[in-house]
Design a binder for these strands. Structure first.
Lengths: 218, 218
DNA sequence: ATCACGCTGTGAATCATTTCACAATTAGAC
DNA sequence: GTCTAATTGTGAAATGATTCACAGCGTGAT
């Protein structure tokens, strides 16, 4: 089959699914399975076989007809496509409910993306080591981010502070932000922002649950 | 202007933004502002003016040229479009890190969507009242959901349990699920599932932060 | 060796979403 | 009352994402 020609930047949606495929492949590999078809991947990812194949076009690894994709090879192709080789340190700003959950959640989960510094304004929360991550006063944000060369940040501060903190992050060198604050950040071009808005998500679910008939119990 | 003709079901994306507009409008209303233009809403929502107007076509309230939208009227139109009149009770399954954060987060935030029952398998967590919400053993899920007529659920259990719990939820009458487990749920047609996958989100941010130049501090 | 089956990769078609662009409208100035 | 400038609602165009459909190929069977 022809080699990938790296046509253009993959879409946001595609990259999201690629991370999902990798996670599924890791589970499959743990089961000792060596090969997998696009159809099987699609089933577990909640997508279609055609979409899986289309998504995989960007990663530069090709399966073989009748045999499918080599699980180990595809994992390694995905990893070299998705991950920065030396790992990417992540900063967390805001050690509230959400922030602490995230610290606990990410510890050891994706070694390539470990949270290397956490920031807050509450003196009770600073100067500690939480889940293997040192916490600092917000005033040290710029210095610490520059010192560690951090380019990815998780923003988990109150909505009223988000815009201002985002600006400081960008000025310190951050180019990607995972934003949990329920506001639209206004960042310069070239900065990637992904919003997680649980209230919006729940309201969407509630809306699409209106006036629907429940299934009869089975 | 012509009246809305309720052409078809609004898209997922549109509904999400409508909830966002309502939130922004509530903030604007608190500032005592009476009218707002599509352009101002767009700025705060991170959208374009045309998109705001397009989205608002579905809600059956129209602004007036030169004056824009009446803030109070638009809030009430959005609310009658988005909300079920008597409110929608919500169930939470899984009282771990995420579950507890959500309980704390949603208490009093959207009165129309209050979490009315929480479930877990850990005996230490059941039979209590956490943030005004009673917690039950998982075995009582079906009974309690049917008794309270709950149709919306938040799924915050380990990935290995998610599929099975989702099936029970659907059988008990749930038609919309906000899924925090990192697996694709296989639900019958007509069931609305919204996934929140923080690992995927962070990996997306990390990917789009690769090989980007940081902005020079200013 | 040869063959047939079934899976991949991808151009083209379809479907969905966003943006453009402008007629219709109206608040406010005079 | 009349005019002007600005804003809305929306048809149409543009853009983006997904699905279709099939040529081409490698595997395993014989």
């Amino acid at each position: 089959m022809r080699a990938n020609k790296s046509k253009r930047a993959p879409s946001d949606r595609t990259v999201g699914r690629l991370t999902l495929y990798r996670r599924i492949l890791n589970e499959i590999a743990d089961d000792g399975v060596k090969h997998v078809h696009s159809h099987a991947l699609a089933l577990r990812a909640g997508a279609t076989a055609a979409q899986v194949r289309r998504d995989l076009m960007v990663v530069g690894y090709e399966g073989t007809p009748r045999r499918g994709y080599g699980v180990a090879q595809l994992i390694s192709a995905l990893t070299s496509f998705l991950d920065e080789p030396g790992g990417q340190p992540v900063a967390l700003v805001g050690i509230g409910n959400i922030g602490r959950s995230l610290l606990a959640y990410f510890v050891g989960r994706r070694p390539n993306l470990s949270i290397k510094a956490a920031f807050d304004v509450d003196p009770q929360k600073i100067g500690r080591v939480i889940n293997g991550c040192r916490s600092f006063d917000l005033s040290e944000l710029d210095r610490e981010i520059e010192a560690q060369g951090i380019r990815v940040a998780i923003l988990a501060v109150p909505a009223s502070e988000a815009e201002q903190v985002a600006r400081r992050l960008v000025d310190a060198g951050v180019v990607g932000i995972l934003n949990f604050a329920p506001v639209a950040l206004h960042t310069p071009p070239g900065i990637y922002v992904e919003n997680v808005d649980v209230t919006m998500s729940l309201e969407k679910v509630a809306f699409f649950s209106r006036r629907k008939k429940a299934r009869t119990a089975g």
